[in-house]
Protein backbone atom coordinates (compact mmCIF):
# COMPACT_ATOMS: atom_id res chain seq x y z
CA UNK A 1 0.00 0.00 0.00
CA UNK A 2 1.48 3.33 -0.93
CA UNK A 3 2.24 5.69 1.91
CA UNK A 4 2.43 9.46 1.67
CA UNK A 5 5.49 10.73 3.51
CA UNK A 6 6.15 14.25 4.70
CA UNK A 7 9.73 15.10 5.66
CA UNK A 8 10.32 18.24 7.71
CA UNK A 9 13.62 19.30 6.24
CA UNK A 10 16.21 21.65 7.68
CA UNK A 11 18.67 23.98 6.01
CA UNK A 12 22.25 24.67 6.76
CA UNK A 13 23.88 27.56 4.93
CA UNK A 14 21.29 27.44 2.18
CA UNK A 15 21.41 23.69 1.54
CA UNK A 16 19.39 20.80 2.97
CA UNK A 17 21.22 19.20 5.90
CA UNK A 18 22.69 15.76 5.41
CA UNK A 19 20.04 14.42 7.79
CA UNK A 20 17.31 15.90 5.57
CA UNK A 21 18.78 14.01 2.62
CA UNK A 22 18.88 10.82 4.74
CA UNK A 23 15.24 11.31 5.79
CA UNK A 24 14.09 11.90 2.25
CA UNK A 25 15.89 8.69 1.29
CA UNK A 26 14.26 6.75 4.12
CA UNK A 27 10.91 8.31 3.18
CA UNK A 28 11.20 7.24 -0.42
CA UNK A 29 12.00 3.68 0.67
CA UNK A 30 8.94 3.61 2.93
CA UNK A 31 6.59 5.44 0.55
CA UNK A 32 5.98 2.44 -1.65
CA UNK A 33 4.93 4.66 -4.48
CA UNK A 34 3.30 7.33 -2.34
CA UNK A 35 4.44 10.92 -2.47
CA UNK A 36 7.54 12.01 -0.63
CA UNK A 37 7.07 15.64 0.27
CA UNK A 38 9.64 17.78 1.99
CA UNK A 39 9.23 21.13 3.71
CA UNK A 40 12.07 23.61 3.64
CA UNK A 41 11.83 26.83 5.55
CA UNK A 42 14.06 29.88 5.64
CA UNK A 43 16.31 31.91 3.47
CA UNK A 44 17.20 30.02 0.26
CA UNK A 45 14.59 27.31 0.80
CA UNK A 46 13.17 27.44 -2.71
CA UNK A 47 16.59 27.09 -4.28
CA UNK A 48 17.56 24.31 -1.91
CA UNK A 49 14.50 22.28 -2.87
CA UNK A 50 16.22 21.18 -6.06
CA UNK A 51 18.72 19.18 -4.04
CA UNK A 52 15.99 17.07 -2.43
CA UNK A 53 14.57 15.63 -5.66
CA UNK A 54 17.61 13.52 -6.58
CA UNK A 55 17.55 12.31 -2.97
CA UNK A 56 14.04 10.92 -3.38
CA UNK A 57 11.59 13.77 -2.79
CA UNK A 58 8.69 14.18 -5.16
CA UNK A 59 7.28 17.40 -3.77
CA UNK A 60 8.79 20.35 -2.00
CA UNK A 61 6.96 22.93 0.11
CA UNK A 62 9.08 25.96 0.70
CA UNK A 63 9.09 29.41 2.15
CA UNK A 64 12.00 31.76 1.72
CA UNK A 65 10.91 33.87 4.69
CA UNK A 66 14.07 34.60 6.68
CA UNK A 67 11.97 34.63 9.86
CA UNK A 68 12.14 30.86 9.67
CA UNK A 69 15.93 30.89 9.87
CA UNK A 70 15.82 30.68 13.61
CA UNK A 71 13.59 27.89 14.76
CA UNK A 72 10.50 29.15 16.57
CA UNK A 73 8.22 26.23 17.09
CA UNK A 74 4.95 28.19 16.84
CA UNK A 75 5.93 29.56 13.41
CA UNK A 76 7.35 26.32 12.12
CA UNK A 77 4.36 24.39 13.39
CA UNK A 78 2.00 26.62 11.44
CA UNK A 79 4.06 26.16 8.27
CA UNK A 80 4.30 22.40 8.69
CA UNK A 81 0.54 22.30 9.35
CA UNK A 82 -0.03 23.98 5.97
CA UNK A 83 2.22 21.46 4.25
CA UNK A 84 0.47 18.71 6.19
CA UNK A 85 -2.86 19.88 4.74
CA UNK A 86 -1.41 19.79 1.24
CA UNK A 87 0.40 16.46 1.54
CA UNK A 88 -2.07 14.42 3.67
CA UNK A 89 0.81 12.30 4.94
CA UNK A 90 0.59 8.84 6.48
CA UNK A 91 4.06 9.31 7.90
CA UNK A 92 5.85 12.46 9.01
CA UNK A 93 9.62 12.25 9.46
CA UNK A 94 11.80 14.77 11.21
CA UNK A 95 15.38 14.79 12.42
CA UNK A 96 16.04 14.21 16.10
CA UNK A 97 17.21 17.80 16.22
CA UNK A 98 16.24 21.01 17.92
CA UNK A 99 13.39 21.19 15.39
CA UNK A 100 12.17 17.62 15.56
CA UNK A 101 12.41 17.28 19.32
CA UNK A 102 9.85 20.03 19.80
CA UNK A 103 7.83 19.95 16.61
CA UNK A 104 7.12 16.23 16.39
CA UNK A 105 5.17 15.91 19.66
CA UNK A 106 3.27 19.13 18.95
CA UNK A 107 2.31 18.10 15.44
CA UNK A 108 1.27 14.66 16.67
CA UNK A 109 -0.85 16.16 19.43
CA UNK A 110 -2.69 18.35 16.98
CA UNK A 111 -3.56 15.37 14.81
CA UNK A 112 -4.55 13.08 17.68
CA UNK A 113 -1.67 10.81 17.00
CA UNK A 114 1.69 9.98 18.50
CA UNK A 115 5.31 10.76 17.83
CA UNK A 116 8.10 8.24 18.26
CA UNK A 117 11.33 9.98 19.06
CA UNK A 118 14.93 9.29 18.16
CA UNK A 119 14.29 6.27 15.96
CA UNK A 120 17.29 4.45 14.55
CA UNK A 121 15.41 1.95 12.46
CA UNK A 122 12.27 2.34 10.33
CA UNK A 123 10.72 -0.71 8.72
CA UNK A 124 7.66 -1.72 6.78
CA UNK A 125 6.52 -4.98 8.33
CA UNK A 126 3.82 -6.31 5.99
CA UNK A 127 2.26 -2.92 5.54
CA UNK A 128 2.66 -1.92 9.19
CA UNK A 129 5.24 0.71 10.00
CA UNK A 130 7.54 -0.35 12.79
CA UNK A 131 10.05 1.97 14.36
CA UNK A 132 12.88 0.97 16.63
CA UNK A 133 14.51 3.26 19.10
CA UNK A 134 17.04 2.94 21.91
CA UNK A 135 15.56 3.06 25.41
CA UNK A 136 16.91 2.79 28.95
CA UNK A 137 19.79 4.99 28.02
CA UNK A 138 20.59 2.69 25.13
CA UNK A 139 20.69 -0.49 27.23
CA UNK A 140 17.77 -1.84 25.23
CA UNK A 141 15.99 -1.33 21.93
CA UNK A 142 12.24 -1.01 21.67
CA UNK A 143 10.16 -1.54 18.56
CA UNK A 144 6.85 0.27 18.31
CA UNK A 145 3.93 0.36 15.96
CA UNK A 146 1.39 3.17 15.75
CA UNK A 147 -2.22 2.72 16.85
CA UNK A 148 -3.12 6.04 15.27
CA UNK A 149 -2.43 7.69 11.96
CA UNK A 150 -0.49 9.47 10.70
CA UNK A 151 2.72 8.24 12.28
CA UNK A 152 5.17 10.88 13.36
CA UNK A 153 8.78 9.95 13.98
CA UNK A 154 12.02 11.73 14.63
CA UNK A 155 15.07 9.96 13.34
CA UNK A 156 18.63 9.91 14.63
CA UNK A 157 21.23 11.52 12.37
CA UNK A 158 23.24 9.09 10.26
CA UNK A 159 21.00 6.15 11.15
CA UNK A 160 19.45 6.15 7.63
CA UNK A 161 21.32 5.74 4.39
CA UNK A 162 20.51 8.20 1.63
CA UNK A 163 19.37 6.59 -1.62
CA UNK A 164 21.54 6.47 -4.71
CA UNK A 165 21.02 10.00 -6.14
CA UNK A 166 18.57 10.04 -9.03
CA UNK A 167 20.36 12.30 -11.46
CA UNK A 168 18.12 14.93 -13.04
CA UNK A 169 15.12 14.10 -10.91
CA UNK A 170 12.67 16.90 -10.32
CA UNK A 171 9.40 17.42 -8.52
CA UNK A 172 6.61 19.79 -7.78
CA UNK A 173 7.17 22.79 -5.61
CA UNK A 174 4.67 24.81 -3.68
CA UNK A 175 4.98 27.93 -1.61
CA UNK A 176 4.19 27.96 2.13
CA UNK A 177 2.93 31.07 3.90
CA UNK A 178 5.34 33.47 5.55
CA UNK A 179 6.03 33.14 9.25
CA UNK A 180 3.36 34.24 11.72
CA UNK A 181 3.45 34.95 15.44
CA UNK A 182 5.43 33.06 18.04
CA UNK A 183 4.81 33.11 21.77
CA UNK A 184 8.39 32.61 22.78
CA UNK A 185 10.70 35.45 21.77
CA UNK A 186 14.29 34.76 20.89
CA UNK A 187 16.43 37.24 22.75
CA UNK A 188 19.91 36.11 21.94
CA UNK A 189 22.01 33.40 20.50
CA UNK A 190 25.50 32.38 21.42
CA UNK A 191 27.57 30.03 19.37
CA UNK A 192 30.06 27.99 21.29
CA UNK A 193 32.55 26.77 18.81
CA UNK A 194 35.21 24.36 19.78
CA UNK A 195 38.59 25.56 18.63
CA UNK A 196 39.37 24.30 15.19
CA UNK A 197 37.56 21.23 14.10
CA UNK A 198 33.89 20.64 14.98
CA UNK A 199 33.10 17.51 16.87
CA UNK A 200 30.57 16.24 14.33
CA UNK A 201 32.84 16.89 11.36
CA UNK A 202 36.03 15.41 12.75
CA UNK A 203 37.21 12.15 11.21
CA UNK A 204 38.73 11.25 14.56
CA UNK A 205 37.23 11.94 17.97
CA UNK A 206 39.18 11.41 21.18
CA UNK A 207 36.93 11.47 24.23
CA UNK A 208 37.61 11.41 27.94
CA UNK A 209 35.37 10.29 30.77
CA UNK A 210 34.99 10.28 34.51
CA UNK A 211 37.74 7.69 34.78
CA UNK A 212 40.25 10.44 34.05
CA UNK A 213 39.83 11.28 37.72
CA UNK A 214 40.31 15.01 37.34
CA UNK A 215 40.06 17.82 34.81
CA UNK A 216 43.82 17.55 34.38
CA UNK A 217 43.32 14.22 32.64
CA UNK A 218 41.95 16.03 29.61
CA UNK A 219 45.39 17.50 28.98
CA UNK A 220 46.61 14.07 27.93
CA UNK A 221 43.46 13.49 25.89
CA UNK A 222 44.03 16.79 24.09
CA UNK A 223 47.66 15.86 23.52
CA UNK A 224 46.58 12.63 21.90
CA UNK A 225 44.17 14.50 19.63
CA UNK A 226 46.92 16.96 18.72
CA UNK A 227 49.29 14.09 17.94
CA UNK A 228 46.76 12.66 15.52
CA UNK A 229 46.47 16.06 13.90
CA UNK A 230 44.72 19.30 14.72
CA UNK A 231 42.92 19.14 11.39
CA UNK A 232 41.81 15.53 11.94
CA UNK A 233 40.94 14.98 15.55
CA UNK A 234 38.52 16.72 17.91
CA UNK A 235 38.13 16.19 21.63
CA UNK A 236 34.89 15.02 23.21
CA UNK A 237 33.79 14.12 26.72
CA UNK A 238 31.28 11.90 28.44
CA UNK A 239 28.33 13.40 30.23
CA UNK A 240 29.75 12.41 33.59
CA UNK A 241 32.90 14.38 32.85
CA UNK A 242 30.94 17.39 31.60
CA UNK A 243 28.58 17.33 34.56
CA UNK A 244 31.59 17.41 36.86
CA UNK A 245 32.69 20.55 35.05
CA UNK A 246 35.83 18.92 33.68
CA UNK A 247 35.08 19.77 30.07
CA UNK A 248 32.69 22.17 28.29
CA UNK A 249 29.18 20.77 27.79
CA UNK A 250 29.42 21.71 24.11
CA UNK A 251 31.82 18.79 23.69
CA UNK A 252 29.55 16.23 25.32
CA UNK A 253 29.11 13.05 23.31
CA UNK A 254 26.08 10.93 24.09
CA UNK A 255 22.35 10.64 24.15
CA UNK A 256 21.87 14.15 25.51
CA UNK A 257 24.92 15.60 23.85
CA UNK A 258 26.28 15.24 20.36
CA UNK A 259 25.98 12.18 18.19
CA UNK A 260 29.22 11.63 16.35
CA UNK A 261 30.09 9.13 13.65
CA UNK A 262 33.80 9.55 13.00
CA UNK A 263 36.05 7.04 11.28
CA UNK A 264 37.89 6.55 14.52
CA UNK A 265 36.59 7.09 18.03
CA UNK A 266 39.04 6.77 20.89
CA UNK A 267 37.36 6.46 24.29
CA UNK A 268 39.74 7.19 27.13
CA UNK A 269 38.66 6.23 30.66
CA UNK A 270 35.05 6.02 29.57
CA UNK A 271 33.14 3.07 30.98
CA UNK A 272 30.78 3.04 28.02
CA UNK A 273 27.43 3.62 29.67
CA UNK A 274 24.75 3.08 27.05
CA UNK A 275 23.84 6.75 27.27
CA UNK A 276 27.34 7.55 26.02
CA UNK A 277 27.42 4.79 23.42
CA UNK A 278 24.25 6.27 21.94
CA UNK A 279 26.40 9.19 20.87
CA UNK A 280 29.32 7.30 19.36
CA UNK A 281 28.23 3.80 18.39
CA UNK A 282 27.97 4.87 14.75
CA UNK A 283 31.73 5.34 14.62
CA UNK A 284 33.51 3.11 12.13
CA UNK A 285 36.18 2.01 14.58
CA UNK A 286 36.15 2.42 18.33
CA UNK A 287 39.26 2.10 20.45
CA UNK A 288 38.84 1.78 24.18
CA UNK A 289 41.45 2.55 26.81
CA UNK A 290 40.21 1.65 30.26
CA UNK A 291 41.53 0.25 33.52
CA UNK A 292 38.55 -2.02 33.92
CA UNK A 293 38.65 -5.02 31.57
CA UNK A 294 34.95 -5.56 32.25
CA UNK A 295 34.06 -2.04 31.17
CA UNK A 296 31.12 -1.94 28.81
CA UNK A 297 33.10 0.06 26.29
CA UNK A 298 35.13 -3.02 25.33
CA UNK A 299 31.94 -4.65 24.07
CA UNK A 300 31.58 -2.01 21.40
CA UNK A 301 35.24 -1.41 20.71
CA UNK A 302 37.26 -3.05 17.99
CA UNK A 303 40.59 -2.57 19.75
CA UNK A 304 41.27 -2.13 23.40
CA UNK A 305 44.02 -1.49 25.86
CA UNK A 306 43.39 -2.45 29.46
CA UNK A 307 45.36 -0.08 31.61
CA UNK A 308 45.65 3.25 33.31
CA UNK A 309 45.38 6.02 30.75
CA UNK A 310 48.22 7.83 32.49
CA UNK A 311 50.49 4.96 31.58
CA UNK A 312 49.01 4.22 28.19
CA UNK A 313 48.57 7.64 26.61
CA UNK A 314 52.15 8.96 26.78
CA UNK A 315 53.61 6.01 24.83
CA UNK A 316 50.59 6.02 22.52
CA UNK A 317 51.09 9.70 21.76
CA UNK A 318 54.76 9.01 21.08
CA UNK A 319 53.97 6.01 18.85
CA UNK A 320 51.40 7.98 16.84
CA UNK A 321 53.80 10.89 16.41
CA UNK A 322 56.42 8.42 15.24
CA UNK A 323 53.99 6.81 12.80
CA UNK A 324 53.06 10.06 11.12
Amino acid sequence: MPRNVLVVGELSEGAPTSTTIELVGAGSRLAGGGTVAVTLLGNGAAAAAAATFPAGATKAFTSDDANYDQFRSDQWLAAVESAFGLASPDLVLMAQSLVGRELAPRLAFRHNTAAAMDCVHLADDGGTLKVTRPVYGGNALATFSFATSPAVATVRAKSQDPIEPKAGASGETAELPAAGEARAAIIGREKVEAEGLQLQDAPVVVSGGRGLGSPDGFKLVEELAAAIGKDKAAVGASRAACDLGWYPPSQQVGLTGKVVTPDLYIAVAISGASQHMAGCSGSKTIIAINKDPEANIFKSARFGIVGDYRQVLPPLIAAIKAAR
Partner: peptide, 9 residues
Amino acid sequence: RGTSLERTS
Protein backbone atom coordinates in the same frame (compact mmCIF):
# COMPACT_ATOMS: atom_id res chain seq x y z
CA ARG B 1 29.15 5.88 41.32
CA GLY B 2 29.19 4.45 37.84
CA THR B 3 30.71 1.08 38.67
CA SER B 4 30.03 -1.59 36.09
CA LEU B 5 30.52 -4.37 38.63
CA GLU B 6 28.00 -6.19 40.72
CA ARG B 7 28.38 -7.36 44.31
CA THR B 8 28.89 -10.86 43.03
CA SER B 9 31.26 -10.12 40.15
